[in-house]
C-alpha cells in the first residue's frame, strides 16, 4: 500500500478545464478560489510550436510544508495519508499559503479561513472518486494508490517538471505522464 495521490495524463489533456469547474461546483468556491486549476503552456516557436496543459491541485505531499508550518494543527494528515484541514482549528493566518510550493491552499476571504483540495474525502469515504476524476472528459485524472497507479500507467511517470517545484522539497503524492514538450525549460504560460 503506497501513498494516495493523483495521476494526471498530460499527453491526453485538451485543457478544457472541466475538472476545474467540477471542483468549483463540489466545493462551492467563490471567484479567485480554485482548489484545482488548469494552466496552459506553450513551447517552441512558429511554425513548430507545441503546447501542453497542467491540471494541478493539492498534491497531498509526504513532506507537506503546509502541515509542517501550520501553527494550529489545522493542516494534518488523515488516517489515509492525505493532507486534510480542520476548518475549526484554522485561524486564517495564511502561513500555509506561503508555504505550499504548489499554491494549493487558498485564503477564502468570506469565511476567514484557508481552504484546499481535500481529494473529496467525503466522496471517497463513500467509495466514490473525487469530483474532478469523474468529470474528466478525457479520462486522464485518477486518484488512488500511487504504487498501483504507477504500475498501471508507468513507466515514464514523473512528479516534477520545469513548471513544477522540485519534488524533493515536499515529496508530492503525484504522478504525471508528461508530454515531451513539457520538459522544455523555455516555456511560456498562456492565459487562454
Amino acid at each position: 500500500m503506497g501513498k494516495l495521490g493523483f495521476y494526471f495524463d498530460m499527453e491526453a489533456c485538451i485543457g478544457c478545464r472541466t475538472c476545474q469547474m467540477a471542483c468549483k461546483d463540489k466545493n462551492n468556491s467563490d471567484i479567485n478560489v480554485l482548489f484545482r486549476r488548469v494552466k496552459s503552456f506553450e513551447t517552441g516557436v512558429y511554425p513548430k510550436p507545441d503546447a501542453y496543459n497542467y491540471s494541478g491541485s493539492c498534491n497531498h505531499c509526504s513532506e507537506a510544508k503546509c502541515v509542517q508550518g501550520c501553527p494550529t494543527g489545522a493542516m494534518h494528515y488523515a488516517e489515509d495519508g492525505t493532507v486534510q484541514q480542520n476548518k475549526d482549528k484554522c485561524i486564517g493566518c495564511q502561513y500555509c499559503v506561503w508555504n505550499c510550493p504548489y499554491g494549493a491552499p487558498q485564503y477564502i476571504e468570506k469565511s476567514g479561513v484557508v481552504g484546499k483540495c481535500d481529494s473529496c474525502k467525503d466522496l471517497r469515504d463513500n467509495g466514490e472518486n473525487p469530483a474532478c476524476v469523474n468529470a474528466c472528459i478525457m479520462r486522464i485524472l485518477h486518484f488512488g494508490d500511487l504504487d498501483e497507479l504507477k504500475q498501471k500507467y508507468g513507466p515514464n511517470l514523473v512528479n516534477e517538471l520545469p513548471i513544477l517545484p522540485i519534488a524533493s522539497v515536499t515529496q508530492p503524492s503525484l504522478v504525471v505522464k508528461p508530454k515531451s514538450c513539457s520538459s522544455d525549460r523555455n516555456y511560456r504560460e498562456k492565459e487562454v
Binding site: Q68, G69, C70, P71, T72, G73, C90, C93, Y107
Partner: peptide, 21 residues
C-alpha cells in the same frame, strides 16, 4: 492579519514544529 482573530489561541499548539507557532 488573521481571518479568525478570535481563535488566535489555536496558534499556540504547534510550537514544536511551526516557526509561526
Amino acid at each position: 492579519h488573521l481571518g479568525r482573530p478570535l481563535s488566535a489561541i489555536n496558534a499556540l499548539s504547534q510550537f514544536g514544529s511551526s516557526w509561526l507557532s
